[in-house]
Design a protein around this nucleic acid. Structure first.
Lengths: 126, 126
DNA sequence: ACAACACATGAATATATATTCATGTGTTGG
DNA sequence: CCAACACATGAATATATATTCATGTGTTGT
């Protein structure tokens, strides 16, 4: 186990433990996404990672819908849908406006529309 | 509650229950994604919905890496990384080749690279 | 042949998450 | 004012998932 030339602080201890290619690790570590960013990115994808929410969001790509309609379309209880919509609202993926008794939901984010359609494309082509 | 003109089978029972806008629901239901597709799409996003896997995949967008390196880069145990890599392998998001003792992993899917960078863009701009 | 190594994997555990049920809040029509 | 309605939400439960620990498999160098 020969120690390689690693001048960076972040790598000093690595060089003691790794014989093969510590310099690659140093570079990769510097290029790597931060914990915070990884968490944030994962948060978004996690929201897209549930079939019920996919159905809800996909339906909302077409038109604004009220909770009751969404429940019928995705064939789920009103409560379940409401809970899911709250998650989507909190993450600002959907927006809503109240009109009397009804709450009308729509997509709040063009990125989401694009991510979603890319996801759908992905499963189609393979 | 008046019944509206809904000739489609799928809507018949809906029209009995809904007074306001059953026709919208009929259309939305026909445009909606299938259970199977929603499941598949969710599956992909679910894999992108974990910070550890985000870090792994992001590191792999730069270069091929072995398990040991990945573990150091994402600051996780070798076992945890191995388990996650198995999930990514099964979903064909990463590919691997063995070279002696080592297993080298790389991205197997340009869609994933694009989804990932879109996810990262998304959190940057807001 | 043997020890060290790189990686994979089964089992166990802890934690997160989705759905349901019951109930709460605010609105509308009679 | 009251009942019906549309939706939100807390609590409970069931299920999924991530990580760790221990161990297994195959490879390399001596």
């Amino acid at each position: 186990m020969q120690t390689k030339q690693c001048t960076e602080d972040i790598c000093e201890h690595l060089c003691e433990h790794l014989g093969e290619h510590p310099q690659i690790i140093c570079i990769a570590k510097k290029e790597s996404i931060s914990d915070h960013d990884a968490q944030q990115v994962a948060e978004i994808f996690k929201l897209l990672g549930d079939p019920t929410r996919v159905k809800i969001l996909q339906a909302l790509t077409k038109r604004e819908l009220c909770v009751c309609d969404i429940a019928v379309i995705v064939e789920m209880g009103q409560s379940a849908v409401s809970h899911q919509l709250r998650l989507l609202r909190n993450a600002r993926l959907v927006r809503y406006r109240r009109e009397g008794k009804m709450a009308w939901y729509s997509l709040d984010d063009e990125h989401v529309r694009s991510l979603l359609s890319q996801g759908i494309d992905h499963i189609k082509h393979r």
